[in-house]
Amino acid sequence: MKKILLIIGLISLGIIYKVNFTNSSSKEKSKIRIAIFSWSNSKGYIENIQSFKGSLEKYGLVNNKNIIFKEYLSNTSRKKQNELAIEARSWKPNLIYSLTTPGTLIVKEHFKSIPIVFSIVTYPVEAKIIHSLKNSTNNLVGTRNYVSAETQIKLLLKIKPKTKLVGFVRRDIESNSNIQFKDFKKNLLKRGIEIFDIKAKNLNSLKYQLSNISKKMDVLYSACDTLLQSGGEELVIEHSLSNNILPFSCNKRGVRDGSLFGIVVDLSTIGSLSGEKAAKIILEKLTPSELVSESTSKVNIILNFRTLKKLKLTISNEVLSNVSEVIY
């Protein structure tokens, strides 16, 4: 009799476990699944993703309540990004959030119909991620961290008017910085300023390139690409300050770390904008091509006072009046 009761008890527990597991699985399936491809764990990228999630929450889309996130980190490896995209397909996400140009180009190839919202993509049209900012004509829409080369160069010349040679530091074969390099080259040459291309595949390659520069640079510019945003800019700053070269940047973190100045787009702000687009896709059933890809109209001039003193430079009151933040 005891054996019979024990068997009945075990069967009951099994049924309860199965019911609970089934209910839990069913609840998870009913939530909107968002796959996040962060490309790198840089601080700016992390802040961007936090703002993206925060924006969704403002629209009532709350993690583990009616949506669920799954994050994929490739650490800037194209091979790993491809593998993660294949892995993500089996999870069957309802929406993709992708950071950076190289990361988004890879994700785009794996998800042809699922909505993809991107961010931290400087040239989405030129990189062939979308057809135009007003109408992507595909399943992508997003935000970009764009400040024109002309705007950045004008500020540079107010700070260092006798600039003759600018070293442009970038990742080799990254479409984003290739486009940016051409934009800078055109705008510098029309002002009679020479540009020197310093391109590297990884951090070790960049360190070697910097230590073997044959020309005397007035300025070293860190491009808006993933190599510089993932440790490369620290090498540029170290080399610049050791050789009395003015370092300037398009990344806020770069100025915090020692670049003299930068006209930057706040990555948190565009993360929030991307979250708004994702919310409209989810809640209003809009397609990405019905939304506009954009950047924030607000840009910030960040100045590093320690670097200013080290390089023994002076800044005009006109420039100082437009500075948004000073790093001491």
Rank of each mutant, 00 (worst) to 15 (best):
S25Y: 13
N204I: 01
S148V: 04
K134H: 12
N322H: 09
I198L: 05
V62R: 06
I106F: 01
Y72P: 02
E238R: 10
E28H: 08
L311P: 04
R253N: 11
L228S: 10
K310V: 02
K80V: 06
S55C: 03
T296W: 01
G271C: 04
K53Q: 10
A149M: 00
K65M: 13
L308C: 09
W91S: 11
Q209K: 15
S98R: 00
F168D: 10
K80Y: 09
G231I: 09
F118H: 02
K112M: 12
E325D: 08
L303C: 11
D257E: 15
I106N: 08
G232R: 03
T269L: 06
S259N: 12
K112N: 14
K162A: 13
S268P: 01
N300Y: 07
V319P: 00
S12E: 09
S205Y: 05
F21K: 14
N82T: 02
D266V: 09
Y328T: 06
K298A: 03
S289Y: 15
K92R: 13
V147Q: 11
S24W: 14
L206E: 07
M1L: 15
I11L: 04
W39M: 06
V117R: 12
G9N: 11
G44P: 02
I153W: 11
K309Q: 07
L10R: 04
V117H: 07
R144Y: 14
V219G: 08
N178L: 04
F69W: 00
K79W: 07
L203E: 09
L133M: 13
S55F: 04
A88P: 02
E126Q: 14
I67G: 00
I16A: 00
I106R: 09
Q152K: 01
S240M: 05
S297K: 14
E325C: 12
Q180M: 05
R33I: 08
A223N: 05
E194Q: 15
K80C: 05
I159Q: 09
I46P: 07
L188F: 09
S119I: 02
S205E: 08
Y221A: 05
Y221F: 12
I86P: 05
Y97K: 01
S272F: 09
K252G: 14
K112W: 15
I302G: 02
K70R: 13
N178H: 07
I46W: 05
E194K: 15
L206M: 00
Q81Y: 00
S40V: 12
I159H: 01
K190R: 11
V169I: 04
N204A: 12
I263E: 13
D183L: 00
I270W: 10
P93F: 00
N139Y: 04
F196Q: 14
L273M: 12
D218H: 03
I86H: 03
H131I: 01
L5P: 10
L188K: 04
I302W: 03
N304C: 09
F168V: 11
T100Y: 08
V125N: 11
T296K: 01
S24D: 08
G142D: 06
L189H: 14
G60V: 00
N204C: 07
G167H: 06
S98K: 05
K29I: 10
K162S: 13
E284F: 02
V169C: 11
D197G: 02
N304P: 06
L5M: 15
K277C: 03
L156K: 02
L13Y: 10
K108D: 12
I129T: 04
C224V: 15
K216M: 05
S321C: 03
N75W: 14
L105C: 03
P124R: 10
S274E: 00
E325H: 07
S274T: 04
S74L: 03
